Lab assay of single mutants.
Amino acid sequence: VTLFVALYDYEARTEDDLSFHKGEKFQILNSSEGDWWEARSLTTGETGYIPSNYVAPV
């Protein structure tokens, strides 16, 4: 499993987005949709879409 870490804070803009804080780690569930990836936060357990340019591989 490839994990990603948040480089910046992000505040959700829609109900499908996932808010997160810098340093939070994610498991990517689906990265085939372009710039927005479906991810699960390893901190909160919540699932939603995150901007791929806000995260980097651990």
Rank of each mutant, 00 (worst) to 15 (best):
V1P: 14
V1Y: 15
V1A: 14
V1G: 15
T2E: 11
L3M: 10
L3S: 06
L3V: 12
L3P: 05
F4T: 03
V5M: 10
A6K: 00
A6S: 05
L7H: 03
L7G: 02
Y8C: 06
Y8S: 07
D9R: 04
D9W: 04
D9S: 09
D9G: 05
Y10E: 01
Y10P: 00
Y10W: 10
E11H: 12
E11V: 14
E11C: 07
E11Y: 12
E11I: 15
A12F: 03
A12W: 02
A12I: 02
R13D: 10
R13K: 12
R13S: 14
T14H: 15
T14V: 07
E15R: 09
E15C: 06
D16A: 15
D16W: 15
D16L: 14
D16I: 12
D16V: 14
D17Y: 13
D17P: 02
D17Q: 14
L18R: 02
L18N: 01
L18P: 01
S19M: 04
S19Q: 05
S19L: 02
S19I: 02
S19N: 07
F20A: 02
F20T: 03
F20S: 01
F20Y: 01
H21R: 15
H21Q: 13
H21E: 11
H21D: 07
K22L: 06
K22F: 06
K22Y: 06
K22E: 08
K22Q: 10
G23I: 00
G23F: 04
G23V: 01
E24C: 05
E24R: 01
K25M: 13
F26Q: 00
F26I: 05
F26W: 01
Q27T: 13
Q27Y: 14
Q27V: 15
Q27C: 08
I28C: 04
L29T: 08
N30Q: 08
N30H: 09
N30M: 08
S31D: 14
S31A: 12
S31K: 15
S32T: 12
S32V: 11
S32E: 13
S32M: 15
S32N: 11
E33Y: 15
E33T: 12
G34C: 06
G34K: 15
G34Y: 11
D35F: 10
D35Y: 12
W36T: 07
W36N: 06
W36K: 15
W37A: 03
W37S: 02
W37R: 02
E38S: 08
A39T: 02
A39Y: 02
A39D: 00
A39C: 05
R40T: 15
R40G: 02
R40Y: 10
S41G: 03
S41P: 01
L42H: 06
L42V: 09
T43D: 13
T43V: 11
T44Q: 04
T44D: 04
G45W: 08
G45D: 06
E46V: 10
T47P: 02
T47K: 12
T47S: 10
T47N: 05
G48Y: 02
G48S: 02
G48V: 02
Y49V: 08
Y49N: 09
I50E: 00
I50Y: 00
I50Q: 00
I50T: 01
I50M: 02
P51E: 02
S52Q: 08
S52N: 06
N53K: 13
N53G: 12
Y54K: 09
Y54M: 12
A56H: 10
A56P: 01
A56W: 10
P57L: 11
P57S: 07
P57A: 10
P57T: 06
P57G: 05
V58F: 14
